[in-house]
């Protein structure tokens, strides 16, 4: 057992972990931030996506010890300082980019990583960037639309409410 400390959404969190303890487990159980979800065990669904030192990673595919000393951001760290929804979160609500909500944290974290790299992506770039995040509810239509809107692009010509 090893002690690790990391900053999660600006808060320093320490805990004792085994070698095999996953970062997602540390976030959910030690830090109590259950917004990060685990939807598969082959690193494909992306529900567990968080940012480690600014880079998006699948937290169920990384050991907690590997994030020792790191700066971690999860969905709980994405709202504005006053608690209101951040730009991407607000766009997801405005454009109905979520239904059951389970994949949503990973989608928001992925969108944030994309828009940091590429502030005005094309539809195709958004879809390709989401290739590591599965959603079973929305058919992706409104997720893509929400991300396009969050990037400041006009989405009024995209079909439907």
């Amino acid at each position: 057992m090893t002690n690790v400390t990391m900053t999660i959404n600006g808060r320093s969190v320490s805990g004792t972990v085994e070698g095999r303890t996953l970062l997602s487990t540390f976030i959910r159980e030690t830090a109590g931030a259950t917004g990060t979800h685990v939807g598969c065990d082959t690193a494909q669904c992306g529900a567990c996506t968080v940012h480690v030192n600014g880079a998006s990673v699948k937290s169920c595919n990384m050991f907690a010890m590997e994030a020792d000393g790191a700066d971690v951001t999860t969905i709980e760290g994405m709202a504005n300082a006053d608690g209101s929804l951040g730009t991407i979160q607000q766009a997801f609500q405005d454009h109905h980019g979520l239904q059951c909500g389970f994949c949503t944290p990973g989608m928001v974290m992925t969108a944030a990583a994309l828009l940091k790299e590429n502030p005005t992506p094309t539809e195709g770039e958004v879809r390709e960037y989401l290739s590591g995040n599965l959603c079973r509810c929305t058919g992706y239509h409104n997720i893509v639309k929400a991300i396009m809107a969050a990037s400041g692009q006009d989405v009024s010509s995209i079909a439907a409410e």
């Binding site: 598969c40 065990d41 082959t42 494909q44 669904c45 539809e123 195709g124 958004v126 879809r127 390709e128 989401l130 290739s131 995040n133 599965l134 959603c135 079973r136 058919g139 992706y140 239509h141 997720i143 893509v144 639309k145 995209i158 079909a159 439907a160």
Partner: peptide
């Protein structure tokens, strides 16, 4: 037995849909 062989639709498998 996993998403390695069961192909789930992803964002780039589908277009925007026109629904009415």
């Amino acid at each position: 037995g996993s998403y390695m062989d069961y192909a789930m639709p992803r964002a780039d498998d589908v277009p925007y849909y026109a629904v009415d």
